[in-house]
Design a protein around this nucleic acid. Sequence first.
RNA 1: GCGCGAUUAGCUCAGUCGGAUAGAGCGUUGGCCUCCGGAGCCAAAGGCCGCAGGUUCGAAUCCUGCAUCGCGCGCCA
Length: 556
Amino acid sequence: MKGTLTEIINAALEEARKDGLVPAGELPAPIIELTRDRKYGDYATNVAMVLASRSAGNPRKIAEIIAKKILDVDREENIDRVETAGPGFINLTMKGRFWERAVKTVLQEGGDYAKGAVGLGRRIQVEFVSANPTGPLHVGHGRGAAIGDALANVLAAAGYEVEREYYINDAGNQIQTLGRSVFARYLELFGKSAPFPEDGYQGEYIIRIAENLREEFGDRYLEGDREESMDEIARYAANEILRDIRDDLEDFGVRFDVWFSESALVRSDEVSLALDELGRAGHLYREGGAVWFRSTAMDDDKDRVVVKADGSLTYFASDIAYHRNKFSRGFDRIINIWGADHHGYVARMKAGVMALGRNREDLAVLLVQLVNLKRHGQPVAMSTRAGEFVTLKEVREEVGRDAARFIFLTRKADSKLDFDLDLAKEQSNDNPVFYVQYAHARICSIIRNAEQQGIPVPGVESVDLSRLTLPEERELVRHLASLPDVVEGAALAMEPHRISIFLREISTTLHNYYYHHRVLADDRELTAARLALMIAVRTAVAKALSLLGVSAPERM
RNA sequence: GCGCGAUUAGCUCAGUCGGAUAGAGCGUUGGCCUCCGGAGCCAAAGGCCGCAGGUUCGAAUCCUGCAUCGCGCGCCA
């Protein structure tokens, strides 16, 4: 909806410049915001103040000039009133017609509502979760999964072509440790005393894998070459765990387009090709028997080793190769979603990407803060090493997929999140999920009622929306018309949590409206108009929920 | 020690490129069901936006310093 307005204001600025009323030079991209209070009209823009600050002019005077031009340009099509106010705001009150069009747009577009085009079809990859296949996913991974998936949805809605990818870290020492851990449990199952590796994985799931191993292969690994067995067992265990991870994510509503294996990358020649490329470009040097990447040339704190003195590769080396591989697949931009404890890697990874000839911005890293699980307001103790952690699966089974996903998406990624298990289960308005879903169910209930009473659901063309004259109705329309802008903003800022804020606000507006006014009124035409409005609100709510991967129930 | 991030109401947090009287939920207090689902609604109280400077017509927002908290700083993965 803002689109029309942006065009009008741009045109008005252009006109004003032509007349020499505002200074020449680059015109500011107008910021148009929904006013938080209707007494400021429907929308407000600060262009006049921006212009004034550049030219030391009088903002109120400039606002007056632009306000006049806006009216000229609009020719009474969309805008009812233009006022200048405060330090130089231009407040715009839209005509009823403008809002009626907004509602009809929603009704016509239905599930496609809020599809935008800022992405311009650019290809963008979101890599997320990427947990090591050495144990089950825990809550923190769940948050990353919810954020990554919702962000991918939002980007797609904003007109990007999106791919979801999971990077499987299956090449490092931790896989060997996993193999040794399972092997020790396996020996125990045969009554053999087996020293458990000091850094081994303690969890219950290791024993389960050992049991599966015994079931499938019997005592085959008791004899024979230890090294060889260990490799096989490690691979076996990692595969088992990966399958569980995949199932977990599927149950959580997250699907990946690509599962990319680190070990496959390492087995190929891509790592050496990547290093060759860096070497040719002069980014590498030898020192102390190791090969270093001069990342300090690209704003990193210190240079980084890529090949150790013993000739083996660092993890960072394969990461460079991995990112090179990503870009070779034609993505314009890649987004990595990492745990916040990895923030020390951001600078070096960006340096790596730049050394490969890309821009710093071509790689974006979104850091996700930890989740503090609580029960009865008390923190739930977790320790990965001791194998005591609450898994994503446990949380999902306890509170449900919708509640878990929604709560993960209520805060921005880079802020800590308290997740109260009891609250998540509570069916009250303390629980934001239910509050929002209830708004949707409530509308469905009204429509069911209408159907039962034989009230026809209005057609988009025939309905007379000019009957919607209440301020509360205007509020609803203002909100639902803002979804495309919210989606666009969320995509550009990579902040899917903005969708949940939108949902909270429109739900409040809906509940308030519902309480004070009857949709199924005595007047037939009025009822039809209100039903149309309800359907539009429901459409917007359902759309926003779907972007978050949360269901929109018809009854609860 | 260096780097990154955080600090907004009693609690948990929003706050869009620097704009108008800084918002929401919970909690507290007080109200609202003859009527489409009370899983809801309304109202009140509650603020030195960590502290001190600076830039600006205007700062929670930008800059500098300080404080507190978290995280990161390996030829680990």
